[in-house]
């Protein structure tokens, strides 16, 4: 038992010095984990964070907590020899302790466009020693997104899309500009119905009417609990074109906003949902 532990410890200490690619990866951030699996390195992942939910088999891995609230001891307990983390992972105290423990900590940059997604895939590939495979996947994803962007550019009258982060208690929390949701809406050939502010902010009923969305977009599971007819029964929303035509689009949060390797499919899905007549 003790010998085993010492051996594990020796392996842990030796790993950063060796040129061998990491074999015990802790993957933090939904899109980062997706990318690791898309590169075929899923068998090297030993643990994940709460936001990593795709592909389904990651649910069986130990969960070290929320991406911004990692516990240093929890991370050490899964004995990683490489930590891949999305931007904003932390807190800084944890990162400092992990540095003291000499575990390589690689931050993968955020992305909200095709070039960003490619850079993200390449950064993950470089950290795993899979540069070639990553370059192929990055080029593929970039081409896919470019193709769908071309289709989006052909839209004559862009649908006005209102993205709601939540509608808890009838209080609508909407996306302004400079968010992942705003970027996805534009990639899919829609127009964000709310451009008066950046980030996510609560929207008054009058602002909802002024935004006049054609479509309401939400993450799966967030539109329930409004008495059978859902979020569109909200008095202000009901009076908008989206409410009148009953157009609510729901998509998985990580799929829609993660900007991982499935971005092109997500954009295509959203495009189809926005323009069902196109066929």
């Amino acid at each position: 038992m003790r010998a085993l532990r010492l051996a594990a410890l020796a392996a842990l200490l030796a790993a950063p010095l060796a040129a061998e690619p990491a074999q015990r990866v802790l993957s933090v951030g939904g899109a980062v984990t997706e990318t690791v699996f898309a590169l075929g390195a899923g068998d090297r992942v030993v643990a994940r964070d709460t936001t990593s939910t795709w592909p389904p088999e990651v649910e069986d891995l130990p969960d070290v907590g929320y991406v911004r609230r990692l516990s240093p001891e929890g991370v050490l307990s899964v004995a990683p020899d490489l930590i891949l983390a999305e931007e904003g992972a932390g807190p800084p105290e944890t990162v400092r302790i992990l540095e003291a423990a000499e575990i390589p900590f690689v931050t993968i940059p955020d992305a909200t466009d095709a070039a960003g997604v490619a850079a993200k895939i390449e950064a993950v590939g470089a950290a795993l020693g899979l540069e070639e495979r990553a370059a192929d996947l990055a080029a593929e994803v970039q081409a896919e997104i470019a193709a769908i962007e071309e289709r989006s550019a052909g839209v004559e009258r862009p649908a006005r899309v209102l993205f709601l982060l939540s509608a808890e208690g009838g209080r609508l929390l909407a996306s302004g500009t400079e968010t992942a949701a705003d970027a996805m809406i534009r990639l899919a050939g829609g127009a964000n119905a709310v451009t008066g502010f950046t980030g996510y902010k609560p929207l008054t009923d009058e602002a909802v009417l002024a935004a006049a969305p054609d479509v309401v977009l939400m993450m799966e599971g967030r539109a329930e609990g409004h008495g059978g007819s859902g979020v569109l029964s909200h008095p202000a929303l009901a009076a908008t074109p989206a409410g009148r035509d009953g157009r609510l689009v729901e998509m998985n949060g990580l799929y829609l906003l993660g900007f991982g390797p499935r971005t092109a499919q997500a954009v295509a899905d959203l495009h189809r949902a926005l323009y069902p007549g196109e066929g």
């Binding site: 410890l9 200490l13 240093p72 001891e73 050490l76 302790i97 003291a100 423990a101 000499e102």
Partner: peptide
């Protein structure tokens, strides 16, 4: 202490 013991006991716990 080993690095692991040092980090877990002295820097965390």
């Amino acid at each position: 202490l080993t690095l692991h013991q040092q980090v877990v006991l002295m820097d965390i716990r």
